[in-house]
Design a binder for these strands. Structure first.
Lengths: 302, 302
DNA sequence: ATGAAAGCGCTAACAG
DNA sequence: CTGTTAGCGCTTTCAT
């Protein structure tokens, strides 16, 4: 009925039946002949009416959870989406995805749009942040969980990016590498909060050491001397560096499958995306064992 | 209001005001004091009231188009989604995406789900096919466009996979390669229709030539003799072959960005994903210049 | 199975 | 500003 651009009263006149009969036809009620129902529905269709399509499947989808991410060209997101879907599936829910392409205003529209489509909760990888955005999120009385970027005002599920990069950097230093290059094109973007945290973690591990920060692939050479390590803020970058500079220690972040698949020699900070997916859905469907409201769920990194 | 579990009449009694005043408070109408409004909203919240979230954005989203794909780990899909979104955006529409993970039954549920969420059309990359599926699709009185796999019963937008692979293979032969290996793990899957078409195209170009068909990466060697070409049914596979076997002619399909980005020496069948996206949206929003209903739009390949 | 009519809930109009 | 009243659209009930 939300698509019907005509009243049931008008429809009843057009069809030459009573308003009650129109109601019976359009709302799957009893006490109506198949013939009359068909006739009314056919007229109603011309005015935007849509029959509700029901399912007789055992695995009927009974509700949606939204996933809003700023990017799709990244295994982090495709895996996150896949894993989240697996968890939702068992609960009879489905995932609907929207991509914001780093557009803050569009992200705001997406959230509103998702909400008005009736999703039961939103997994949000946001480029927005701050007081005003917090107030905006408060308009929505459905659970919203942040992943990827911790925006503060809603529960965050993920690793501690700062510690993870600090630990990884410390390990590289312990392994004897003395020339450290930090490679992170994402640092150029103002809204890459997690990226900034990783960089802070790196810096905290190299207070008295020689190091260089690089944000552009052009600055990456094709060869380096023996004790050089290039620490990349994501495996996505590590992979690109690997293609260009073969004989250098490369360190990544996110533990992409491609790294293992292509047998590439890149050490990487790892964490469990299935666990992030599970925790995010847990928060949204409110199925946590304890009744306690979890504000943040920081998971382990390796 | 759809979340209000109490009537405005009851609310008016609780708050000691008239029904009209409750209506003014809950629906952002004028002629009400901020104080009274606040008091009523506070009470209403306890009964499930949600403030209506509207947008004052210039780029307000006014409707959705669904995109259903079976996979996300592929540049074809991430680009298709991106490009489709760009086109929709200009029309004030947004894309909502669902991933089926090659699950036929779930795909059927996704279509139903999308429809019931109110999308204005669906771009469908399907694993289903056949008479029964055709009948199912007929239940939905919104435009559905097939991409990736031509399922026959709805308009298809894309290249002619058969001719594209036949042409590419002919070119490889003309270039003097004599040992041809066709690599396509996807052939193992029953529902990869486009993949089967590409394979048929290959076979049609090598009727009297020595060739070998490989469906498993394990069978790919690390080196080949001079006149060998490995023809891969997608760049996704070509890329994997490239990592394993360096000194061999490799041919791909889809023209992924990564090929160029990483300066990899792979020839590839190319086509315009933006054009596919544009044509698909054209069909859905019915904005074609001619009033003719386009059944299929086969675009050029290079 | 259908129509007529009553009922309910939300919104709009009008009066002070 | 607020209450009162009227109206509209959808649903339910009752009678045939």
């Amino acid at each position: 009925m939300k698509h019907l651009k005509i009243t049931t009263a008008e429809l009843s006149k057009i069809c030459g039946v009573s308003q009650g009969t129109v109601d019976r036809a359009l709302n799957n009620r009893s006490d109506i002949s198949a013939e009359t129902k068909k006739r009314i529905i056919n007229v109603a269709r011309q005015y935007g009416y849509r029959e509700y399509v029901d399912s007789n499947s055992e695995n009927k989808i009974i509700g949606q959870v939204g996933i809003i991410v700023f990017n799709l060209n990244n295994e982090y997101f495709s895996k996150l989406i896949t894993e989240t879907e697996l968890v939702l599936h068992k609960l009879g829910l489905s995932a609907v995805i929207m991509i914001t392409h780093y557009d803050k205003q569009y992200e705001i529209e997406c959230i509103r749009n998702m909400y008005n489509m009736g999703v039961q909760g939103i997994v949000l990888c946001s480029v927005n942040r701050g007081r005003e955005f917090d107030n905006y999120l408060r308009l929505f009385d459905i659970p919203i969980v942040a992943v990827g970027n911790n925006i503060g005002s809603v529960p965050y599920v993920g690793i501690d990016d700062f510690s993870a990069m600090r630990d990884m950097t410390a390990k590289v230093i312990a392994d004897g590498y003395t020339d450290l290059i930090y490679f992170s094109p994402a640092l150029k973007y103002a809204d890459a909060y997690a990226q900034k945290l990783r960089y802070s973690g790196f810096l905290s591990a190299v207070p008295n050491r020689k190091h260089k920060t690089v944000t552009d692939m052009e600055e990456i050479s094709e060869s380096y001397k023996d004790k050089t390590a290039i620490i990349c803020s994501t495996d996505y970058y590590a992979f690109q560096v690997y293609v260009k500079a073969r004989n250098v220690k490369i360190v990544g972040f996110d533990d992409l499958e491609a790294i293992e698949k292509y047998k590439i020699r890149i050490d990487s900070v790892g964490y469990s995306l299935p666990e992030i997916a599970r925790l995010a859905v847990d928060i949204i469907v409110g199925k946590r064992d304890s009744g306690v409201i979890i504000k943040h769920s920081i998971i382990e990194h390796t």
